[in-house]
């Protein structure tokens, strides 16, 4: 049991590039932890959606990366970063329907260009930083205490 009241659970996950067979394992693991901690199911769902979309982006677009997850008593902080190609125009990337995903990804049911906006919709706090040629960083905060976005 990983319940450490008043303390923090820290997790680090490596997200391999282009390995679709395990894409989502990090999100799945965090989901399990939150379930064990008795977090409200609708908060768990929003957390899962936000983290899974970010994890998929790292697999599909970012050449793999890392997820750092800190669970506090009142919130979860998720930091997902990669050293991939980065995003040239963040405003454009945030637009629903904009996607550079290749056909191979679309054939798997992804790449509709709704991931980033979906993260924004579900996260309590969301920040995207990217530098072309250097990589991309996604920060997600979810509050565990109350339901509903603040």
């Amino acid at each position: 049991m990983e319940k450490l009241v008043g303390s923090i659970i820290k997790k680090e996950y490596l997200i391999p590039a282009n390995d679709f067979s395990i894409a989502g394992e990090a999100s799945s693991n965090v989901r399990k932890l939150l379930t064990q901690l008795g977090v409200n199911p609708s908060i768990i769902k929003r957390t899962s959606i936000a983290m899974y979309e970010a994890e998929l982006n790292v697999v599909i677009h970012g050449n793999g990366g890392t997820a750092l997850v800190d669970i506090f008593e009142d919130r979860v902080e998720i930091f997902i970063y990669d050293e991939g190609p980065g995003i040239e125009d963040i405003e454009l990337a945030m637009k629903e329907g904009y996607s550079t995903a290749p056909d191979r990804i679309r054939e798997m049911g992804f790449g509709a260009g709704m991931g980033l906006s979906n993260i924004k919709k579900n996260a309590d706090k969301f920040k995207l930083e990217s530098e072309p040629g250097k990589g991309t960083k996604v920060y997600i905060t979810m509050y565990l205490s109350q339901d509903g976005k603040t």
Partner: peptide, 9 residues
Amino acid sequence: QVIRTAEMM
């Protein structure tokens, strides 16, 4: 990925 998506949702 269909199964993983189902899990998340």
